[in-house]
């Protein structure tokens, strides 16, 4: 819920600065490892944006894949779960390098 409110705040700031008054679509970039529940985000977004300039806006989620740097293998490997094991060597010495994003990418406004 706080994240959905964060999204709305960014939208309202942008609306204030760039002078638009209706948002029709919102694109979010959500990393696979960010821990964000897409279902919950969609639900909360609808609840939070009711009576706002983003009321009824379509929410588009761009899922970004997870990746990490395996210290043992010395290379970047795909990760499907945070703190999971390296798909190559099975070790846990992984530094997450991608997939934790939670960003508002762009808006379609009228």
């Amino acid at each position: 819920m706080a994240l959905a409110e964060g999204v709305l705040q960014l939208i309202e700031d942008a609306a204030h600065q760039q002078e638009f008054k209706k948002v029709t679509t919102v694109w979010l970039e959500i990393g696979q490892l960010s821990g964000v529940e897409i279902e919950a985000m969609s639900f909360c977004f609808d609840a939070v944006t009711r009576d706002s300039i983003a009321a009824g806006a379509r929410l588009e989620i761009i899922a970004l894949p997870g990746s990490g740097w395996c210290m043992a293998c010395s290379e970047t490997v795909p990760m499907t779960e945070l703190f999971g094991e390296c798909p190559q060597c099975g070790g846990y010495q992984l530094q997450v390098t991608g997939g934790t994003e939670m960003r508002v990418k762009e808006l379609e406004v009228a």
Binding site: G6, R103, K105, E106
Partner: peptide
Amino acid sequence: MSTKRMVQIEQDILSKN
């Protein structure tokens, strides 16, 4: 009349906090 346009935000959701 539709005057739709795109606005780039590129900001982290937690950026305010």
